[in-house]
């Protein structure tokens, strides 16, 4: 245990400059988000394009996964719980596992894989091609123009995708339940609504928003950290993916813990 703590401490000490830099970057992005509305009209089109790419174009994949996950939970739930005669807990499983946890995690993983990598690669290449310098030469802050609008775009897309994931997974759950025994959709929804609470939906939304922020932030940060060579771009992209996933998992545990304390 002491060894682990020592190692962690050492790592933090060695990366202290990087951590400080990341925090100041986060702060800049946050202040950029709050002043987004009053500054630019062109940033809005970047946001829309980002939402279109990250959200709308990923909807098919998210939908497919949501049906599969909702269905699998119900299938496994029924197989496992029926052995104890507790099939009704399958709804609880759908609520606690899918709505509270998997919807945001799965959406985040898809968004990391699609958008996180593309943002990091795009920004990395922009650095290599001097496009960031070009923006600076105009007096446009790359953080405001590139990072803030992409962050808002990813956050909005994550929020939207998580809602669709929840809805579609419930449909998937119902569809797979009908394979076991016929149940009216109304009854299924009724049972489901009896189990789900507003805070479950809210925690799912909060998680998706926070995860979206993390993905955009880490991807942009790593993209902008590319110094000069194109060979750095894939390395930075891998780093962005790994760091995003790690941070998402840790923050997920934290939010779940806070949720358990609050409700």
């Amino acid at each position: 245990m002491n060894h682990i703590l020592e190692m962690t401490g050492k790592k933090i000490y060695l990366n202290w400059t990087g951590i400080k830099e990341f925090f100041s970057f986060t702060f800049e992005v946050l202040s950029g988000i709050f002043s987004f509305g009053k500054r630019t009209q062109i940033g809005f089109s970047v946001v829309v394009k980002q939402v279109f790419f990250t959200g709308y174009q990923a909807l098919g994949l998210i939908g497919f996964l949501a049906i599969a996950v909702g269905g699998l939970i119900i299938l496994q739930g029924n197989l496992l719980l029926a052995a104890f005669g507790q099939s009704r807990w399958a709804y609880m499983l759908l609520v606690s596992v899918v709505i509270r946890e998997l919807s945001s995690i799965f959406t985040a993983l898809i968004v990391v894989a699609r958008s996180g990598t593309s943002i990091c690669t795009e920004l990395g290449n922009m650095v290599v091609n001097n496009e960031i310098d070009l923006l600076k030469s105009y007096g446009i802050s790359p953080i405001d123009y590139l990072v803030v609008s992409r962050t808002i775009g990813v956050v909005v897309a994550m929020f939207t995708l998580a809602i669709f994931f929840n809805i579609i997974s419930v449909f998937g759950g119902w569809f797979f339940t009908t394979l076991f025994y016929p149940i009216y959709f109304g009854d299924f929804i009724n049972n489901f609504v009896n189990e789900v609470m507003i805070q479950d939906i809210l925690v799912s939304v909060v998680k998706s928003v926070v995860f979206g922020f993390i993905i955009a932030l880490i991807s942009c940060y790593n993209g902008l950290k590319v110094a000069r060579a194109t060979t750095e771009v894939p390395q930075r992209t891998i780093k962005a993916v790994v760091n995003s996933i790690m941070l998402i998992v840790m923050v997920n545990i934290l939010i779940t813990y806070i949720y358990s304390l609050l409700f």
């Binding site: 630019t40 062109i42 795009e122 001097n130 070009l134 105009y138 446009i140």
Partner: peptide, 29 residues
Amino acid sequence: NNQIGFVFQDGVFISNLSIRENLQLPIKY
């Protein structure tokens, strides 16, 4: 924003914008 005009050696542009959008960018922004 309109004090200094900078011209790069190789003519840098934002690659995912058209030339028109590139020219409009600082003015619109």
